[in-house]
Structures are given as C-alpha cells and as structure tokens.
Amino acid sequence: MKKVVNDVNQIVDEMIEGITSVHSNLLKRLPNTTVITRSDVPVKGKVGLVSGGGSGHEPAHAGYVGKGMLDAAVVGEVFTSPTPDQVMEAIKAVDSGAGVLLIIKNYTGDVMNFEMAKEMAELEGIQVEQVIVNDDVAVEDSTFTTGRRGIAGTVFVHKIAGAMAEKGASLAEVKEVAEKTIANVRSMGVALTSCTVPAAGKPSFILEDNEMEIGIGIHGEPGIKRIPLQKADQIAKTLLDNILGDKHFGNHVAVMINGLGATPEMELYIASRKVVQELNEKGINIHRTWVGEYMTSLEMAGFSITLLDLDDQLTELLDKECEALSFCN
C-alpha cells in the first residue's frame, strides 16, 4: 500500500484539519467533533441542511458545505458511517429555529445513525426531517443496503435543497423539493480497479487487468456483472442505457460524469462525449454537464453517470449561485 498518510489512525482527523485550515474563510470544525460547518452557522431563519457519511468519497461531503448548499457535513471513518452523537452535534450547530433537514445516502449504517440522531434532536425540541437518496439503478439490494444505494446523485439533492433553503423556504418546502429531486435522479457506475482502505492495507476486491465491473458501489460493493474491459463508448452507452431504461426522462436534463478517484479527466471527457451524443440522438436536451470528481471511492478507477430530469423549478434551483468548494463555479 502506497498512500500519502502519516498514521492510518489519524487520517480523518488530519484531513479535517487540512480542509478547515485551508478554507478557514468558508468552513470551520466543531471542536472535538468530526463535523465541518459553514463559518456562519446557524443562519438565522434558515432551515439547516446536514449530510455526511464515511470518508474516502471526497470531495463528498465537506466539499458541498457552503452558502446555497449544506450547512454541515459529518465525517465518518473511511467507508464507515459517522456516529449518532456526531450527527447530533451537527444538528444542534445548524439549527436556528427553522428546523433541520438530514440528507442521507441509502446505506444501512448511515440510515440507522442519522435516524438515531434525529430522534435525539427531537427529544431536545429541535424539528428534524430527513430524506434518503437512492439513485443507483444497478442493484436493488447490496452488501450495505436494503433497497437501492445512494451515490453521486446525492450532490444534486444537496444543491437543489440548499438553494431552496437559502431562499427562506420552510422545512416542509425544503423536504418536498429534496424528495422531488430524489424521484428525478438516476445514476450508475463502473469500476476498472479496486481501492485500498488504509486500515486494511490491501485492495477491497480484485479485478484483473482485462476486467471491469458494471454497477459497482462506491464502497466496492458488487455490481451487475464482471465482464472483459470494453472501450469507452461502449461503457458509457451501457451505463446510460440502464439509466434511461429505469425511468422515463423528459427532454431537459442535467448530467454528471463523476470520476471515482483515479480516472483522468481525459478519460472522463471521452465518456462524456459519448453521453452527449447519445442524449442528442434521443432528443434529450442537456441543460448543463458536470465532469470531474464529485463522489469518489478512494483511488478506484472508473466513473459513474448521473441524470437529473428537470422541470422549471429544479432548473431554477440548480442554477442558483452558491459558495461550496467543490460544486459552485
């Protein structure tokens, strides 16, 4: 294992210290926690948005903390859900009296721990709602999940719910638009290589040089099938066909081509070229395409495709200005 680390037991702590020291004008760390918040929380009169999960998916989730997106991200150990106590600290920090919305990726540990924190907060009189993102069309149940997994489409939920909250909407209204986004977003990924959790010191699974796995999860969970390595156009078409086959999309979408940690931008743009061609041929208008790393899996090679079916409301909110480090430009 070759990684730029000091002590595998201090990786998360040192990463959080690095993020908040470099971006101290925008972010701060709650003392004695793994919680990263906007520097100005709580924002008076605004619904607070909290998300998070295991580390190893950077820039998720701290990269989406900022005006117009999340108010706080709770960081767990590598591929491990944050504890209910840490989530609770985030809820208390962002609550201004207007309530708090939890945005949870559909993984068993995340759902359980965030729901426990929700119950703890409600006992203290804080109004909390939650939504669960399940955008991965690959498999219905997986190693860590009952139902579909939450993957890169979660970023669109952060952005749209964040824009709604920034407008001064109520907790019910923010939850409603988050659920609408979840209903309209679909994703699917492919892995060319495995990744190595630092504490384990060895790859999570093995893919031979001539193999790839279609429908892989962001923790290395099995996908639909393991097949011989294909050319970029065929890979992109396979993922896109599965996404389009899962939902009827209108003629106006947002697209995300998301690298899983070790895929050069060169290759992501080759894949995005095919996605654009396919959607154009089907008469589906692309409002905007994001290409880059948004929800990774350590140093896994591969990528995912996300489509968000847009209407006027979602388009307006998606286009609102924001100040999060890794999405707003």
Rank of each mutant, 00 (worst) to 15 (best):
M1K: 09
K2S: 12
I11L: 13
E17H: 14
E17S: 14
G18E: 03
T20D: 04
S21G: 10
K28T: 14
L30E: 06
K44I: 10
K44A: 15
K44D: 13
V47K: 02
V47D: 04
L49V: 10
S51T: 11
G52D: 01
G53D: 09
G54C: 10
S55E: 07
E58T: 06
P59C: 08
G68I: 03
V74N: 07
F79Q: 04
F79S: 05
T83L: 14
K92Y: 05
S96E: 07
G97I: 03
A98H: 07
G99Q: 03
N106I: 06
Y107S: 02
Y107F: 15
D110V: 11
M116A: 14
M120H: 03
Q127F: 11
V128R: 00
E129Y: 10
Q130D: 12
A138Q: 03
V139D: 01
E140I: 13
E140C: 01
D141C: 08
S142D: 10
S142Y: 01
T143G: 12
T154P: 13
V155P: 09
F156E: 00
K159M: 04
K159A: 06
K159P: 09
M164P: 00
A165H: 05
A165N: 02
A165V: 06
A165Y: 02
K167F: 07
G168I: 10
G168L: 10
A169Y: 03
A169H: 04
S170N: 08
K175F: 03
A178Q: 03
I182M: 07
V185S: 07
S187T: 14
M188R: 02
G189W: 02
A191L: 01
T196R: 05
T196L: 08
P198R: 07
A199T: 14
E208P: 04
E208I: 00
N210E: 15
E211I: 01
I214F: 13
I216N: 03
H219S: 06
H219N: 11
P222H: 12
P228F: 10
Q230I: 12
K231R: 15
A232Q: 11
I235F: 00
T238Y: 00
L240D: 01
K247I: 02
H248A: 13
H248P: 00
G250A: 02
N251V: 07
N258L: 12
G259E: 05
G261F: 10
G261N: 06
T263N: 09
V275E: 01
N280Q: 11
K282D: 02
K282M: 12
I286N: 04
H287S: 12
R288W: 10
V291Q: 01
G292L: 09
S297I: 04
L298S: 03
L298T: 02
F303V: 09
S304Q: 04
L307R: 00
E321A: 15
A324T: 10
A324K: 02
A324C: 15
L325N: 06
C328Y: 05
C328H: 04
